[in-house]
Design a protein around this nucleic acid. Structure first.
Lengths: 215, 215
DNA sequence: CGTAGAGGGTTAACGGTGTAAACTCTAGGT
DNA sequence: ACCTAGAGTTTACACCGTTAACCCTCTACG
């Protein structure tokens, strides 16, 4: 590879740089190139060689910083998780009313998926088979997200908050999954559907009526 | 390819076979081998060369019967759709009570996904990117499935049956998606979650209360 | 000063993928 | 007897993730 271009700073001392503003190391550059490639061209185009070309190094160099492609993707997932978590946390912090908070959480979740479809795909949609390998414990942050929902549900007197929160997640994720994969009937207005999903959440978390209408 | 192995019957006359039981043509053999490979080893192992090896021909021969791999997968999807549709149709035909019918439809949908995870993956989970190419009109059968739900919802006096049916689909699909990809918290009992999802469907389809509790 | 070693990088290669182009063989029709 | 159409094969291309071997350039230490 032409070593002239990008002329890597040959000395690692970095001179007397202000702390925190060091030039990004190769690892960071790989990560950001991968992220850009992901949102720009989709997961299908996210190959080691493409990333390397984008970043100006060889494909094999990536393996010096990531164990394999999965590990790289996991790093991307983690980044996405961070952003999602932040969006939800902000709702929780700014909205004391539990009803509006729950609605806000739902909206924020949907908005994240709609605004970052490629990231959502990688985070929650991708290859069951392959992505089962994403370290389970890394999903703790995702679980923390669910707790945001569960807390609001508790305050609203919903049924079995933990379980209800998962069902809400199923509804929201189901919508995003079908929407992002273009499987929803084109005649339906997706925005209206999203609104409706959010408002129906409040019925979804209600405890089942004790006396079924069955005689 | 070694022409000795599997010694393909060199003459196509097939003797005097009973009508309707003709030996499967190569296309059928490819399709069934692909299906077997899919359920046996998962989508990741579904390569043209593997299929060809299984069926005893060359990978390129498959292209004489399918335009490309996507077309082959589409045929598999269609087969899965057929089965799902049949399962749902049977519920509709045997259950006149709309409440039990709706519950039965939900259960049948979930059961199909849980019993045929690899097929469900290919039908509803796979690569948004790539599978957007699955001909939209082929999803008409899927839309017919939704009408099953919508009819029951109508009879139950649910809100906006078409829209409600989609939301029910979102809930069910969301559950299956998260469950099949192993993203649900391992501490939760999936069966209980499925049961709960089905029973909550009846709340999900309720019209929103006209007077919100907001003062 | 010399040298060992480690880290970050490269090239070359392996086995796998989907797919296109060209070729071969066989059956059937005129 | 010849031509044609179809089914199948071989070969090849461009890509993929990944490994092994090698090559620098610094640092540490005797």
């Amino acid at each position: 590879m032409t070593p002239d271009s990008t002329s890597r700073s040959p000395r690692p001392d970095d001179g007397g740089r202000a702390a925190g503003t060091e030039p990004p190391g190769l690892r960071e550059r790989i990560l950001s190139a991968a992220g850009a490639l992901l949102v720009g061209e989709g997961y299908a185009s996210l190959s080691m060689r493409r990333i390397a070309a984008e970043v100006g190094c060889t494909a094999t160099s990536i393996y010096l910083h990531f164990e394999n492609k999965d590990a790289l993707v996991h790093a991307l997932i983690e980044h996405g998780m961070e952003e999602l978590h932040e969006a939800l946390r902000q709702v929780v912090e700014t909205e004391p009313d539990p009803r509006r908070r729950l609605a806000g959480l739902c909206r924020a979740y949907l908005d994240f998926g709609l605004a970052n479809p490629k990231y959502y795909e990688v985070m929650f949609l991708l290859h069951p088979e392959r992505m089962a390998r994403y370290p389970q414990e890394k999903y703790r942050r995702a679980r923390r997200n669910l707790e945001f929902f569960a807390e609001a549900i508790t305050e609203l007197g919903g049924a079995d908050p933990t379980l209800s929160s998962v069902l809400v997640w199923c509804l929201l994720h189901g919508f995003l999954s079908l929407r992002l994969s273009g499987r929803l009937d084109a005649h339906l207005d997706p925005d209206r559907l999203a609104d409706e999903a959010v408002s129906r959440v409040f019925q979804l978390i209600q405890p089942a009526p004790t006396s079924p209408s069955q005689p």
